[in-house]
Design a protein around this nucleic acid. Structure first.
Length: 427
RNA sequence: GGAGGAGUGGCCGAGUGGACGAAGGCAGCGGUCUUGAAAACCGCAGCGCGAAAGCGCCGGGGGUUCGAAUCCCUCCUCCUCCGCCA
């Protein structure tokens, strides 16, 4: 959530960032409306507080007054104050509800260093790493490899669950499971602490990480209870410390979690339906960090390199993309994607997204820390970051397509062999 | 799912309508003492909004009252017993 104080103190700056950097006139208008409501709220609050002060001191007098008649008179005097307060409180509650509704819809402000651009076409390729595989034959797409090896069953996936579902079988299922274990182990060595969170969370959590209120159409939810299926481990893991004040020496907190992720992908009907690039359910290993504000820029670089380490060790060719302002996600102030090249589908596949959210999520979820022991060291909001390390299906695609052999088998990347009982080929 | 009990500050815990933002203890911070530390003693000390005065916050929400941690309603969570279950 955007800090109402920043909006109040530097309104023209915020508006021009929304208009000229994010190209989001709607956000600028919401911000202007929020500004007016914030002013209204402050006026109401002051009026209500003055009356409450009056009531509080009168109530004390009444408590001390022994004379029944005087007492009755004082009480009678306060009756009108009571209803006045109720009136202000009602208006105040209404104004605050409206204001919150607006603030929750305002996107984060980009870091000053993020290049301005309108769409993904203006994203910047920061660098390319790794060597592309060369083939003496035309590389096949993973759906052909998977079907001929009997390790991916698309038809039965569709039969039991519908479009955008598939079954991993035999070595396919084992490969994915091996990848999950191995990825987590790599991140443990990088200093992360593993957590296994719920895959279903309360609605409040989705507000904390900012999937709600704006992006509800991509979420699955229980029809009769307050449960949402997580679209990413970011949601349960970030909310771990919701409404908490952490001690300074607990930071930075770095977690790695495996979860299944559930997304409706409603808008993309027909697109990416072939193969396992975009399913309604997919596995992901996710890193989440909670850091001091002054450390978050550096933490993003570390997070990115922690994710890259996976692709390096798998010896897959990839590139690092910096999102321009227009392609930044709603909550992020800075974001990098990792894309792995996959020769069968002949495209760069997004396997990781690493973002710094600044205090945007922390403000929504009220995740704070105490900078020092002194009483003047008031609790401050932490900065949160997360990055995939990595998304499983697309990593499996890249392995199958890059490591495919002329004879139709797939070579197992060296680092994975211990996790696949020493096996060198899938055939 | 049924029956009963309970939710108070970082933690434990007192408080059943009036000076309670909340006794006491532990933990924390500052000081005295000490070569240093511990102990002992003294003091400070919750969170939010606000420039401040002040206002709000005793699981969440609502109500009664001049006044609610305290009374009422409702929801949530935890504990005990029973039922069911991987």
């Amino acid at each position: 959530m955007l800090d109402a104080k920043i909006l109040r103190e530097r309104p023209s700056e915020v508006l021009s960032i929304y208009r000229e950097r994010l190209f989001d006139d709607a956000a600028a208008e919401l911000a202007q409306a929020a500004l007016a409501l914030d002013d209204k709220r402050r006026n109401l609050l002051q009026a209500a507080d003055e009356l409450k002060n009056k009531r509080n001191s009168a109530s004390q007098l009444i408590g001390r007054e022994k004379d029944a008649e005087k007492r009755a008179a004082l009480i009678k005097d306060m009756e009108s104050v009571k209803s006045e307060i109720a009136g202000y409180d009602a208006q105040l509650a209404e104004t605050e509800t409206e204001l919150d509704k607006l603030l929750l819809q305002l996107p984060n402000l980009p870091d000053p260093e993020v290049p301005t651009g309108k769409s993904d076409s203006e994203n910047k390729v920061v660098r390319e790493e790794g060597k592309q595989f060369s083939f003496t034959f035309t590389p096949k797409p993973h759906w052909e490899i998977g079907e001929s090896l009997g390790i991916i069953d698309f038809e039965r996936g569709v039969k039991i669950s519908g479009s955008r579902f598939y079954i991993l079988k035999g070595a396919g299922a084992q490969l994915q499971r091996a990848l999950i274990s191995w990825m987590i182990d790599v991140h443990l060595d990088q200093g992360y602490t593993e957590v296994y969170p719920p895959f279903m969370v309360k609605e409040l959590c989705l507000y904390g990480t900012a999937q709600l209120p704006k992006f509800g159409e991509n979420l699955y939810r229980d029809a009769e209870e307050d449960f949402y299926f997580v679209p990413t481990a970011e949601v349960p893991v970030t909310n771990l410390y919701r409404d908490e004040i952490l001690e300074n020496d607990q930071l930075p907190l770095r977690h790695v979690a495996y979860t299944a992720c559930f997304r409706r992908e409603k808008m993309a009907a027909g697109r990416d339906t072939r193969g396992m690039k975009r399913g309604h359910q997919f596995d992901k290993v996710e890193m989440v960090q909670f850091v001091r504000p002054e450390d978050s820029k550096q933490a993003l670089r570390t997070l990115l390199s922690d994710a890259e380490e996976i692709l390096k060790q798998l010896e897959l060719p990839y590139r690092v993309i910096q999102m321009c302002t227009g392609d930044l996600s709603f909550a992020a102030c800075e974001k990098y994607d990792l894309e792995v090249f996959s020769p069968g589908v002949n495209e760069w596949l997004e396997v990781s997204s690493c973002s710094n959210f600044g205090d945007f999520q922390a403000r929504r979820a009220q995740i704070r820390y105490r900078p020092g022991k002194d009483k003047k060291d008031k609790p401050r909001l932490v900065h949160t970051l997360n990055g995939s390390g990595l998304a499983l299906p697309r990593t499996v695609i890249a392995i199958l397509e890059n490591y495919q052999q002329a004879d139709g088998s797939v070579r197992v990347p060296t680092v994975l062999r211990p996790y696949l009982r020493g096996r060198e080929f899938i055939k």
